[in-house]
Simulated assay, not measured.
Amino acid sequence: MEDLEKRYIFNSVFPSIVLSFYNYFLLKAMWALIGSPNNNIIILISLGVCVLTLISSYIELYNSNKFTRSIMVVLESWKWPSLIFLFIMIILYLISYFVIIPKIITISIYLVVFLIGFYAYYNAHKIKVIEYELEIENLKEELNIIHISDIHYGTYRNQGLLKKIVEKINYLADKGAQLVIISGDLADGSTSIGKEDFNEFKNIKIPVIFTPGNHDYYPGIEKVYSACENAGIYILNNNYCTFKDLTIYGLNYSFTNPQKSFNQFNINPETNNIMVYHAPDHWKDFIKYGFDIQLSGHTHGGQFYPANLWVGKFFPFCKGLFINNQGDKTSYLSVSTGVGTMGPPLRLGTNSEMVLLKLIPKKIKP
């Protein structure tokens, strides 16, 4: 069975059945607070959402189109407000034991949640540029690198996002950016990847380097590689390349332990070494091997509330730039929240971002 079909069974079939029951009880509780719920309508809505999800997500695997993409965006976007409504229902029902809550207040709360959801959708589609300045030893000239991650090209984010990315990259290139590095999850795994899907990247004015993340394997890593090569993207597949004063290593995402893979590299600690690895893990190991900078993503910074409150518990280096000082040696870890989104195309409490890393020669202390 192909990876896409396995993901369909485990990520669509089982969750959709469970969510149909969840939606039924949630909608019934929401309706009961403002009137007498119509059980037949609630059942019809819950089953309709389930069937639409199953049919549309299956079509998307092999024949992605605007109609099914639009359906999936709406259905997937409902997941966030439904979670918030669950918390609200618990609170409102507890309060209702002590006081009568006017219907107008309950309806107003419902509307506010939906309005916040619309803002989260808008925020997810606005790319923000974050700039950091990094002092690097043995660097002869200033270099500006654009670090992006987690595009998740698929059902929910596709050609429209790629065009925005290319426009933003070219704007930064005109301002002095010299290289783009994608630290994984270029593909999402919700659709198959065709050879020409990434062709928009042919319009980028500067070189692009890519190292895969976990989602790039779901639609078939060879298909992702083929689309990258066709778009002129340079793939670092457990190997390295040089760019001016930099040696850039790309380590494929490992579902077990990547240490066996990066042990193969003959790393010169006297050069300026960058490690591109999708997950923000093993930073201390990479530092010991002589890497100055690690570029990662994967976490999305939690993407939206309340996930952004607990993702940091699993990933201590959740988002932003982290600095490690050991004697005179300074090492950096850049963790991007991602330029795309996974699942619901919403962001609340995080941004869709590009990271502009301004590498400058380290100042020698007198």
Rank of each mutant, 00 (worst) to 15 (best):
M1F: 13
M1Q: 11
F10L: 15
N11W: 11
V13T: 11
P15Q: 04
I17L: 15
V18A: 15
S20M: 15
Y22I: 10
Y24R: 09
L26P: 07
M30K: 11
L33C: 04
G35A: 12
S36M: 12
I43H: 10
L44T: 11
S46D: 05
C50Y: 04
T53W: 15
S56F: 00
S57W: 06
N63M: 10
N63K: 08
R69H: 02
R69F: 07
R69E: 12
R69N: 13
V74R: 03
E76Q: 14
W80M: 10
W80S: 01
W80A: 01
P81F: 01
P81M: 03
S82F: 14
L83T: 07
F87D: 02
F87N: 03
L92S: 09
L92R: 09
L92M: 11
F98G: 03
V99F: 06
P102L: 06
K103E: 14
I104P: 00
I104K: 11
I107K: 14
S108D: 06
S108R: 09
L111F: 12
V113P: 00
F114V: 09
G117R: 02
G117D: 05
N123I: 01
N123Q: 06
H125S: 09
I127A: 12
N138R: 13
N138M: 03
E141V: 03
N144P: 00
H147P: 02
H147Y: 03
G154R: 14
G154Y: 13
G154S: 07
Y156H: 11
Y156C: 02
R157D: 05
Q159S: 08
E167R: 11
A173M: 12
A177Y: 04
Q178N: 13
V180N: 06
D185Y: 08
A187Q: 00
G189V: 07
S190V: 06
T191M: 12
K202G: 01
I204L: 08
P212S: 13
G213R: 05
G213L: 03
G220F: 05
G220E: 01
V224Q: 05
Y225N: 08
Y225L: 07
S226A: 14
N238P: 11
T247I: 13
L251P: 02
T256Y: 11
F262T: 07
F262G: 06
Q264I: 13
F265L: 06
N268D: 15
E270C: 10
P280G: 08
I287T: 05
Y289S: 10
F291S: 08
Q294A: 07
H300Q: 01
H300I: 02
G301H: 13
G301L: 04
G302H: 04
G302A: 03
F304D: 04
P306F: 05
A307V: 10
G312A: 04
G312L: 01
K313A: 15
P316T: 06
C318F: 08
L321G: 04
N325Q: 14
T330Q: 11
T330F: 03
L333T: 06
G338T: 06
G340F: 07
M342Q: 13
G343K: 05
L348G: 01
T350Y: 14
E353P: 00
E353A: 00
E353G: 01
M354W: 05
V355R: 11
K363G: 11
K363Y: 08
K365G: 03
